[in-house]
Design a protein around this nucleic acid. Sequence first.
DNA 1: CGTCGCACTTGACCTCGATCAAAGAGAATT
DNA 2: AATTCTCTTTGATCGAGGTCAAGTGCGACG
Lengths: 245, 245
Amino acid sequence: MDRLDIHNSEVPALCRSCEVRHKGICGALDAAQLLTLSKHTQQVRQSAGTELIADDSEIRSYANVMRGVVKLSKMLEDGRQQVVGLQFAPDFLGRLYGKQNTVSAEAASDVELCRIPKPALERLVQDCPELEHKLHEQALRELDDARGWMLTLGRKTAAEKVASFLWLIATHIDPAAEASRQMETASTIKFDLPLSRADIADFLGLTIETVSRQLTKLRRDGVIEVINNRTVVVPDTERLELRCG
Amino acid sequence: MDRLDIHNSEVPALCRSCEVRHKGICGALDAAQLLTLSKHTQQVRQSAGTELIADDSEIRSYANVMRGVVKLSKMLEDGRQQVVGLQFAPDFLGRLYGKQNTVSAEAASDVELCRIPKPALERLVQDCPELEHKLHEQALRELDDARGWMLTLGRKTAAEKVASFLWLIATHIDPAAEASRQMETASTIKFDLPLSRADIADFLGLTIETVSRQLTKLRRDGVIEVINNRTVVVPDTERLELRCG
DNA sequence: CGTCGCACTTGACCTCGATCAAAGAGAATT
DNA sequence: AATTCTCTTTGATCGAGGTCAAGTGCGACG
C-alpha cells in the first residue's frame, strides 16, 4: 500500500476532468481559470488497493475521480471498519475547509485521479462562486447518500442490505441502463462489482460470510447471476428493487 | 401532529437568528441584507413531536433552529424508521437546491425556528457568496457527522452505541463543559436527553428495550446517573468516552 | 503440469439483540 | 384518591447474523 506521490506522474496537457461536466468541478470555470487549473493538476493512476488518503492526516491536495471507484472509510481503534461512501467518476474527492481529513480513501478499483494541490483549489474556489456552488451541491448529494445509507445500516436486514448494495452499484455504474429502465420497464443490467466481498461487508455492516450467503440466496432465487465472482447480471431489475426493503 | 403554518406566528422585529453567529446563516450578511432577511423571516414556536417537514414533500421554506433540537429521519414503507441527524441551535434546517425534501424533520423537544421562504433565501444565497460558503461549511459538517454515525450504526455494539449517543448529546448540549473538559481533565457533565427512548432507538438502529437495558447497565456500572428518566449526570466523562468503542 | 496463495463459499454452532409479555412509574383526567 | 394514559423497565425466549472451521475454485508462478 504505497502512498500516492503526485510528483511521479506525467504532466497533463489539459486535465481531462475539464471535459467531464456532469458533477465534476470544471464546468464552473471559464477559459482562463481552466488554464490556471491545468498548470496545477496532475493526472495520476493508482491500482486497486492503494491508499489515497489516510484518516486524520493533514490535507495537502484534492482530486477529481476520473475513472474507477474510490472507497471512503472510517475505522475504530480495534480495526473494525465501516465504508462510509463510494465515489464514482467524476466526483470530487476531498474535505474542503478542513485541516485534517475526516475519512480515509482507498482505490477500490484501478482509478485515475486528477490531483490539485490544496492552495491552488482554494484560490480557485475563492475567486469563483460558481465553483463553490458546484462543490456545495456535491456535498449535499453526498449527504443525501450518507443518510440513505444510514437507513440501510440501521434498519434493513442482511438480505435487504445486499440487494440495496447491488441496486446502488447498478444505478451508479450504468446510469444509461437506469434511464432506459425508466422509459421501458423491465430491463436487464450487467455490471462488474467494484468491491471485494470484504469491502461490501464493510459497507453494509456485515461479515463477508453473510454477504456471500445472501448473494448465493439471490442467485438461487434467480434474482441475479454471477460470472467469475465479479460480474453481476440482473435479468429483471424490478425483482431486485423489490428486495431492497 | 398539526403541520406548521408560518402565517400563524408573530411577526419578528429582527429575527433573533441574526444574533447567532457560530453556525447560523446570518453572520455572512451585511446590514442591508439583514434588513431584507428580517422582512421575510418568521419566528415560530413548535412543541415537541410536531412534524416540521415531511419526507419527499415539496420544499417551500427553510429555517434556522433557534432553540431546541430537531430530529431528521427517514422511513421504509413498512414503518421501520431511522433517525439520520439531529440539529441543534443554531443549525440551518432544509435541503438547499432540491425540489423535494430528502428527509422528514420533527421537533424532538420544544423548538423555536426562524423560517424563511425558499425564494427569499435563494435570492440571498445568489447575491451573497459568503452565505453560500457558510451553508456549504454546515453541509460538510453534517456530512462528517453522518459518516461518523455510519461507523456507529454499522460496526458498534449496542452498549457502544448507547454510550456514543450519550457522548454526542453531552458534547452538543454543553459545549462549554466539553471545552473545560479539555483544559482540566475529568469533569462532571449534566444534561437533559432531548429524545425519548424510542427516538434514541431509532437513532441507534436498536429497539427501545435494548436501549433501556444498556442505560440500566451504565447506571449499574456507575458510568451515569439518571434523574426522572430525562436528566443524565456523567460523573466522569472519561469513563463514558471509554465505552464508545 | 502441479502447487501455492488468495478470495470466496459452505456448514455447524453460538451469541447478541429482537421479540413477546408483563409489570412499574409518572403525569393527566375524572 | 382512583383511573387511565403513555413511557419505561425488566424478564423469558427466539432467531438473524456472527464466529469458527473446512472446503472450493481460480489465477500466478515455478
